[in-house]
Structure formats: C-alpha cells, structure tokens
Design a protein around this nucleic acid. Structure first.
Lengths: 253, 253
DNA sequence: TATAAACAATGACGTAACGTCATAGTCAAG
DNA sequence: CTTGACTATGACGTTACGTCATTGTTTATA
C-alpha cells in the first residue's frame, strides 16, 4: 500500500504543502494517519478525495461547500466525476464564445465598418452573472438547492439568464394581479403550475419540497421582501396557492 | 457618443459596480470623465479597455501586472487579443486533458483491473505548477520577462516542466564545475552557449538583454542564493562568462 | 557515530481582489 | 415636493492560501 507524506503528495498533485496543511486544518482532507513524529500520511483514498477537491476548486466551488459535499455519507464519486465532466465541457463551450468575441472584436478594430454592439464586447464572460445567479437563487429558493441550481445554470449565457429571471418576475407579477382572489381558484392554480414548471430550470422539485418552499417564502425575510416588490403580502398568497397545488400534486402521485 | 455610468456599464460587462470603483481607485481603468456631481462616465475606449482587463483576469493575470501592460504607451490591442485567444485555446486543451483524466478515473473506479498510476489522477491540473513556474522564472530571470515567460510555459505539462527545470539545473552544475577556470575559456563558453540557447524556452534573448541578466544574477540576492547552491560565487562567474559570450555574440550581429 | 541536508510540524502575519454595508448626495419621474 | 433609483466614498470583512519563523525528525554520507 503506497503512502505519501506531504511533499510527495504535493508534488504529484501539483498543490502546495501549505494547501495540504490548510485542508487538514479545515477538515476538508484529513490524512490517513499521523506518524509518531506527527507526520501526515496519505493513501489511495485520500488521493482520490484530493482529486475531487481539485475538480471542485477548478470549477470555483468554495471550500466550505466542497467540505460539506464530499464528506457527506453516500457521496458518489463516479456521479461527481460525471458532473465535473459536464461542467468542464460547458466551460469549454463558454471559452469558445470568448474566442468568438475576440475574433469579432479584432474584426471590429481592423475594419471600421464592422461595428460591434457594446454588449457584444463581453459575450462569454460570466463571472459576475454566476455570482448574481447564486445570490438570486439563494434569495429566492431553498438554500439546500443552491448547489444544484448553480450547476444547472452555470452554462447559461447572459441573455438566457436574463430571460430566465424575467420569466420568474413575470410569474410573480401574474400572481400579484390575482391578489385577493381565491388561492385555490383556477386562475391562481394555473399560474402556480407555471411556477412549479419554472422551478425545473433550477432543480427537480417534488410536492413536499414545493410546500417547504412555500413555507420559506412566507417565513424568510428576504423572500418576503422579494415578493413584496410585486404586491402586498404576495409571499403569503404564493404560499397558500402552493399548498393547494402541492396537495393536488401529491394526489396525482 | 454613447456614455455609461457605473451601473449600466457593470450590467453589460457583467462585473460589479464595486469592481469598477476598485479599478478606478487602483488606476487600472479610469473613467472618461467625472460629472459635476462626481459620477463616473465611461465611453467606447474605456469599454474596450475593460474588455482587455477582463480577458487578463479570465487568464488569472494579477491586476497590478494588468495595469502595467495595458497602460503602457504602444499597447497593441489587436496583438493582445490574439494572445488572449492563444491562451484560451491552450486552456481548452488543458480542460480536455482534465476530461480525459475524469474518464480514466471513472473507468478505474468501475473496473478493478484498470488501475491508474497515482500521477494520472491529477493530469491536467496545473495551477501550482504555473505558480511555481512564475516564482522560478521570477527568481532566475529578468522580472520584465516574467509575463512573456508565463505565456510561453503555461502550456507545459508537468513532466515537460520538470525536464526544463532540470536542464537549467544541469547547466548551473556544469558551470559550477568550471569555477576557478577562465570565464572566457572554451569550456565555460560552451556551457554559456548552452545556457543562452536554454533561455529560448522562456523568451527570445538578445546580447544586451543577456548582459543585463548577468548583471541581475550578480546583484540580486535571490539569484545569488539560487546559484550559490551549486557553487561559491557562481553568480559572479556566470556574469563574467555571460559578458564574454554576449560580447562575442554582439560581434556576430 | 556524527553531521548535514532534506523533510516534517505548528504558528502567525500578509496578500489579492474584491464583497458587503453604512452613510449621504444626485437625478428623474410622478 | 416626494420617492425611488442611481451615485459617491469609506471601511471592515472574506477566501484561500502565500510567506516566513522556529523547531523537531529522518536519511544518507563521511
């Protein structure tokens, strides 16, 4: 059984010794054992785990989230690898968009008649969008869903993201127009069905989760504030309508 | 002429207002003007410049270096864009290696007879290597060369990098063996010629630059320390031999 | 066996690039 | 005039290590 101390592992993995210390201290990656002298010793299992950490870091997942994910009972390494592959492929697609942006900018600079729209200058850059998405999702949806949502929307372009966010707003506006009506009424239930379907953009909801979300809308200050922008006590109305819908949905199942 | 204040520019570029403030404060991206009220106003030139900054950041270039590069007289935007394209293409290649690593790891996990060598777990990850390269280059070469060197070696795999670094060490060792002999002697000059050729891995040297490097070797504490590891006052000896070689080289030119 | 170099540990301050929030002035529309 | 959106500056906080100091441990060589 092959064992590594910090320098050897750092060398083959291409990380620093300091990083390994940091990971041990923060509990993200513990060594297999410590020698009597206090030396950290790592084995195959730790090497695989470090690989996971490195993939998550490559995809800019914050360490405190990585820690939760990979140390959870039932963590499926193969599934995680498949997900990393998907995200990396999407990143490569985005990089191709960046390269196209470069080509278009060069053409625009060289030929005075090939003007770019200002927005076109930044096509493919999505850092801030992702952050905005994460914040938006966090504010509007169950925090447990944040990670999954992140993975699902990371590949969106800005126009796609804008469109998605606008759809969410439109649904909220539609509900606001029905304030004062019966949350179990046909109209409200039609819009809520649309909302439920909309959530599929972020994660795969089920009736129980949807009810939990309704609770969250009504009880969490940030959610209330978000919906208040569209109508007075809209969060409560959403919750009521969600409960009706989710009850019916459960019956379906 | 279209003008933007911070929120509008932040929105189309996908950065935060805070980022624009930060860039202004640090002098990386100044606005076109300030209104009487103190509002920042940006125009086309600033938009193009921001695009540059964003490409450099995408490629993880530190801001203080970005500042120097793009604010230099004669900064060639088209050339820079072409260079970004090259780097992004290389990054995509590296991502493909990562994806292959994923495939191999999955196969290894699913089929117990498809064992991976430990090093194979980390193929494609290069962050620490790049950092090490930057540090190494910084320690051994003219700081002005760092950016160019970074671009030139970024695509190296770890074995390629290791090989390259070893070659550098071997040359230093060879010179150390000649300590005490004539720096203008045939043997020393033969090794120095090898050193000059070796530098081509990092940048395109010329005799004047090479002499400057010799000066740096002898005067900079880090360089001296590096060469001291191989032999007493090796840095001085290198400088002397470099001066002879560069003089002869100049004559060639 | 002694020594020196390489490897290891812990501790702690510092860094880069913003993020977050507080406070207050400015602008535009109703 | 009022209100909400936009703007400014200031300042503390965050994340993921980097850097360095100090000291113990291991290994190879003379």
């Amino acid at each position: 059984m092959k064992e590594y101390t910090v320098k050897k592992l750092a060398a083959i993995a291409g990380v620093s010794v300091r990083t390994l210390h940091h990971y041990d201290k923060t509990g993200i990656l513990r060594p297999f054992k410590r020698t009597d002298a206090g030396y950290r010793v790592y084995r195959e299992k730790e090497l695989l785990k470090l690989q996971q950490i490195m993939f998550y870091r490559e995809l800019e997942m914050p360490l405190n989230r990585v820690k939760v994910i990979i140390n959870k009972a039932g963590f499926d390494m193969v599934k995680a690898l498949e997900n990393h592959k998907k995200c990396l492929t999407e990143r490569n697609q985005r990089t191709k968009v960046l390269i196209r942006t470069i080509d278009k900018t060069i053409k625009s600079l060289k030929e005075k008649n090939a003007m770019l729209k200002d927005e076109e200058l930044y096509e493919g850059f999505s850092k801030e969008e992702i952050k905005a998405i994460k914040k938006e999702v966090k504010e509007k949806y169950d925090p447990k869903m944040v990670k999954e949502s992140y993975q699902k929307v990371a590949g969106l372009s800005k126009p796609q993201y804008d469109s998605l966010m606008k759809e969410g707003e439109d649904i909220a506006k539609e509900m606001a127009l029905l304030l004062g009506s019966d949350p179990a009424g046909e109209k409200a239930q039609k819009v809520i069905a649309k909302h439920y379907k909309y959530l599929h953009n972020f994660y795969k909801p089920n009736p129980e989760m949807y009810k939990g979300l309704g609770d969250l809308y009504a009880s969490d200050e940030r959610f209330r504030a978000y919906y208040e922008k569209f109508g007075k006590n809209l969060a409560d109305f959403m919750k009521d309508a969600i409960y009706v819908f989710a009850g019916a949905k459960k019956g379906d199942k």
